[in-house]
């Protein structure tokens, strides 16, 4: 909404605001890097390497192909894990919010299972699936599941009864029909927000998912940190952040497109 306001108030004014924010943001980052550099002068490289050292390492890893490999490895379990967890979470959230019967049956189970963090499931992942992409995907799916479940549940639960009244009076007779034509569109803002949050959360979970020996960016960070190669650690954290940025920006663009009606 505020972006609209900016452009509506006139090109010059809008550009000024945007430009200002960009400059201030850049200043903030530059200041941070400057502080980091100063601090690194007073610390050995295994505690805090200089920004330049990290940059060199980053380029080195990129050029050697190690970064690309790690990225592909992580995506191999991140993607299916996210897709499965998101789909199941949304499906279950919608079903339990819509059907009183299903909700009554499942509510105590949900209560009990909810607080289990994905990390605690590592044992199950290893025992049931194994130390492989499948096991890692399992952890990631667990991360996606609850966020999407609660978002979808909340979204469907809060759909006003009047929308359903209108839908029925205009000829939608079946439950499926109502869910498809009224409930899901009405709950789409909450559901899409859940999907977006889940995607980001899952990406950050790759470290936990890879902790028991599955290759990827998280594994790289863990081994480097064990070897006190802090520059490598920072370089790969940067990679993670960059990927997150790309992901989130992409999903945000889709979100704005789909929810342009708001």
């Amino acid at each position: 909404m505020s972006i609209e306001l900016e452009t509506e108030l006139g090109g010059e004014f809008g550009d000024e605001r945007g430009l200002r924010r960009f400059l201030l943001g850049t200043l903030g980052v530059a200041g941070f890097v400057a502080l980091w550099w100063v601090a690194s002068l007073f610390n050995p490289s295994y505690v805090l390497p200089a920004p330049t050292a990290v940059a060199e390492t980053f380029v080195g890893e990129l050029q050697s192909g190690a970064m690309t490999t790690a990225l592909v490895q992580s995506i191999t379990h991140w993607l299916p894990g996210t897709v499965v967890g998101t789909t199941l979470g949304v499906a279950l959230g919608v079903t339990l919010a819509w059907s009183d019967l299903a909700d009554d049956v499942a509510a105590p189970l949900v209560r009990v299972l909810r607080p289990v963090p994905p990390l605690a499931l590592i044992g199950f992942a290893i025992a049931w699936i194994g130390i492989n992409d499948g096991g890692a995907a399992f952890i990631i799916a667990a991360g996606a599941f609850w966020i999407n479940y609660y978002a979808a549940y909340g979204g469907v639960d809060s759909v006003s009864d009047e929308f359903l009244d209108v839908g029925r009076s205009l000829g939608v007779t079946s439950d499926i029909g109502l869910v498809r034509k009224v409930v899901l569109p009405a709950a789409s803002p909450e559901i899409i927000t859940g999907i977006r949050t889940g995607i980001g959360r899952c990406w950050m979970l790759i470290i936990a998912a890879e902790i028991f020996g599955v290759p990827g960016i998280g594994r790289k960070i863990l081994t480097a940190s064990n070897n006190l190669a802090v520059d490598v650690v920072i370089a790969y954290i940067l990679l993670m952040s960059l990927v997150y940025l790309v992901l989130d920006t992409g999903v945000e663009a889709v979100q704005n497109r789909v929810l342009a009606w708001r």
């Binding site: 009047e162 929308f163 009244d165 209108v166 009076s169 789409s188 009606w261």
Partner: peptide, 15 residues
């Protein structure tokens, strides 16, 4: 559909 309904709060589908 034989009973057309108009509510006070419109209840238009915003999407």
């Amino acid at each position: 559909p034989d009973l057309g309904i108009v509510f006070q709060e419109y209840h238009l589908f915003p999407w």
